[in-house]
Amino acid sequence: MWSRVGKRIAISIPVLVGVVLAIFVMLRIVPGDPVTTMLGEHVNPAVIEKISREMGLDQPVTVQFFQYVFHALQGDFGTSYRLNRNVTGIILDAFPNTVKLSLLAAVVAWVIGIVAGIVAAVRQNRLLDRLFMGCALMGVSMPVFMTALVLQYVFAFKLKWFPVSGFDSVKAMILPAIALGWNSAGSIARMTRSNLVEVMQNDYIRTARAKGLREHGVIVGHALKNAMLPVVTMMVLQISSMLSGAVLTESVFGVPGIGRLAVNAIETRDMPLLQGTVVFTTILIIAGNLAADLLYNVLDPRIREGA
């Protein structure tokens, strides 16, 4: 199993390098000189050149890239043009908010998704099933920012139950968490339901009934673990879609997290900050996928000693 983990980590490294390279190249082929953008159109060209040199922008792109990687490996992602602050520091300041939002959304998604999925499977084709699956379908078909805007409009602007923006109180966190979690809750509920319904057809479920287990014991003790194996993987994978959703949710609700940081960085053409947020999120997503894989390994005995 550990050799598998090692392999997975080894595969992740080229992925990470590729992402860094891609973002690096992309940011340098888009038209417009960053220093000009930063200082404005009417600045003396000599000043612009001087600053460019100071920032190393006059070097060939390859040199810039290796310098960037070299510094990044030491935790230094450069200095933000706009905020004139160390990028690592900015990200670490914003990170806890994104984590809080994502975790809250994950809890919303997992708890609601799993419970709704189980209830729907048990009450197959009855009212609750229809109701939950309707909500789930809505969740998976609405884009996150739509959900966010609708929730904000209805519950914050109109009903005034929650603050319109901010992230400094539990109350303020509820709407963003639901907006971000609904989509995942929907897919988790749908997958839980369909897996559970399918697993309940298995011969070993009949065996469990035959040995004298009551129906709830059969579901909890024998069906759930089998049904949840693929769901668990999906749940952890959802973390990455949650991070991308966080960008939009944070913008709508004004949550000072990494997502909003990235959007700001794009608006102000703050290259180091944008690079930093992208690399940072990539690392998170890779780690999340690795965790999903590991978890599946631990849970499924067939894979556990198979590899």
């Binding site: 011969d203 065996t207 009934r209 035959a210 004298g212 287990l213 009551r214 194996l229 005995p301």
Partner: peptide, 27 residues
């Protein structure tokens, strides 16, 4: 259902046609 569960597996039990799939793979 409750009374039946006390009888099943205790006073009357059953072996199935499909030995390969009648046991739960995860325990």
């Amino acid at each position: 259902a409750k009374e039946l569960s006390k009888v099943r597996g205790n006073e009357i039990s059953m072996i199935f046609q499909e030995p390969m799939t009648s046991l739960n793979p995860v325990y």
